[in-house]
Design a binder for these strands. Structure first.
Lengths: 108, 108
DNA sequence: CTACCAATTGCAGACTTTAGCAATCGTTGA
DNA sequence: TCAACGATTGCTAAAGTCTGCAATTGGTAG
């Protein structure tokens, strides 16, 4: 292995650390989507979306399929959905703890 | 909820997107560690480690326990280990696909 | 061929993150 | 009280990331 695993992991997570990229991956978790579809759901500039899709492509997380002038994106690994699921469950835990803390401060 | 979930997720992943923070979380996945112990394992400047620990604290992923002049860190959620596990498994998938691609290029 | 649409690329400026150094805080032991 | 140690914070220069705009590619239709 050329690079230590923890560095590859950090890069993987860095790839996931952007709201548009998260939304894309969540949409692709459901099913394949064309760029035009992603664009309609997410509502950012086409150029911005392309940039973020390029990041996901470089990381090897998504694959493309051309159909006429449309490009369809899909996940390369179903485990990405699993990652999203675990992340959500961590968040609900962490956020509820933070809410408890706030409540404790509020209640004398 | 004040902020959409996908943004909170992106921030969670951003928090994980740093090699030192990954190493810390992997060490804490095994058991609680004192800062001095983390320092010995990871081998960065104390100030740098403190910075990264502060990031993890702010994100609510780790908790501290003081014992004399030493500070012990632990995970707030065991699911973080799960996240690391899934990430590793995605990486082995993605990396092996990239290696196959290289092989295909090499083989005529 | 020409015009058009979908998608991508290149680039400049604003913004964010990081590393390293010096300074600080809190605890322990002389 | 003072020095020493573990841990943290503040600060700044350097590196990296993001946004929006303009330009470009490739495919489709008139």
């Amino acid at each position: 292995m050329s690079r230590p695993l923890y560095q590859a992991k950090a890069e993987l997570f860095k790839t996931l650390g952007h709201p548009v990229r998260i939304r894309v991956l969540e949409l692709l978790s459901v099913r394949e989507h064309a760029v035009s579809g992603l664009l309609a759901e997410i509502g950012v500039e086409p150029a911005s979306l392309s940039q973020q899709l390029a990041v996901l492509r470089r990381a090897g997380l998504v694959a493309t399929r051309k159909e006429g002038s449309a490009v369809h994106y899909s996940l390369t690994s179903p485990q990405v959905s699993e990652l999203m699921r675990v992340a959500r469950s961590i968040l609900t835990g962490v956020l509820s703890e933070q809410i408890e803390l706030l409540d404790d401060l509020r209640a004398p």
